[in-house]
Each structure stands twice: as C-alpha cells, then as structure tokens.
Write a protein that binds this DNA or RNA. Structure first.
Length: 121
DNA sequence: GTGATGACATTGA
DNA sequence: ATCAATGCCATCA
C-alpha cells in the first residue's frame, strides 16, 4: 500500500533530536485519519531498518512501550542519544512535545505532497 | 465476507 | 487536569 511508502519517507524526514506524533505523520502522508496505521507500519518493520521509528510518539509525547525494539528501553535510549530528554512520568516514558516535537511547516507538507505525486504513490 | 485488533486521536463529562 | 466513550481504518484470522 502506498501509504506505507509515504510513511517511510515522512518518518525518515523527522529531524534528529525531535519527535513526531502518529497523527502528524498520517497528516503529512495525506491521510489524517490513519494514525493507527502508522503505528502498525512501524511495528512490523515494514518501513525498513533505516527508518527512525524511535522518533515517533503519541499525541501526548508518550513512548509506545511496545517491544517493537529489541529491548523495552531501546526507544528511550535512542532518543536520549540524540539529546532528547525522556522523563519517567505517571503515564510512562514521555518527552516534552513543546520542546522536542517536530514543528513541521506548511512548506514541508507541500513538499511531501509534491514528492508523492511525482513518485506516483 | 465478517468481525476482531491495534506503537492512535478527539471529544465530552 | 483526568477518564471513558467514540471514531478510525488497514490488516488478519
């Protein structure tokens, strides 16, 4: 499904040291309602090894916790390695989206849209 | 085809 | 702020 190709591209475009939400990815893929599919795609490794799946969190900045990584705290460690603060809260491992959230611009969205059209996906 | 599942999001109490 | 209820939609069984 082309949605997964798009998701792969968008995830790969998340800047180092920032995180993006599932909904944000879905939105940039042109499918605002496919947040769940983004998670599904990342889980099965459908997007390939080189895709930085650890930079994707939910709308509240919470890490998945799912063992899609080798160890449970792998995602946290990868983020910490990029300078992202990951805090242990009542909810779980969490990052401050105000500070580390990817603030994509309108131009970014347009760029992706154009790219997808060009690739026909 | 039908129904359950899920790394989600939003809304309303 | 917190929690429950809904909506969502591509996979799978």
């Amino acid at each position: 499904m082309d949605f997964y190709q798009r998701a792969g591209i968008v995830c790969g475009a998340i800047p180092r040291g920032t995180v993006a939400s599932y909904g944000q990815i879905a939105l940039l893929c042109g499918k605002p309602k496919n947040a769940r599919q983004v998670g599904y795609a990342l889980n099965k490794g459908r997007l390939g090894e080189e895709v930085p799946a650890h930079r994707v969190v939910n709308s509240r900045g919470l890490l998945s916790g799912a063992a899609a990584f080798d160890t449970f705290d792998m995602q946290k460690n990868l983020l910490a390695g990029e300078g992202v603060e990951v805090l242990w809260t009542r909810e779980g491992w969490q990052v401050d989206r105000k500070r580390y959230g990817w603030k994509h611009t309108m131009q970014d969205a347009e760029k992706f849209r154009a790219l997808f059209e060009e690739l026909g996906i």
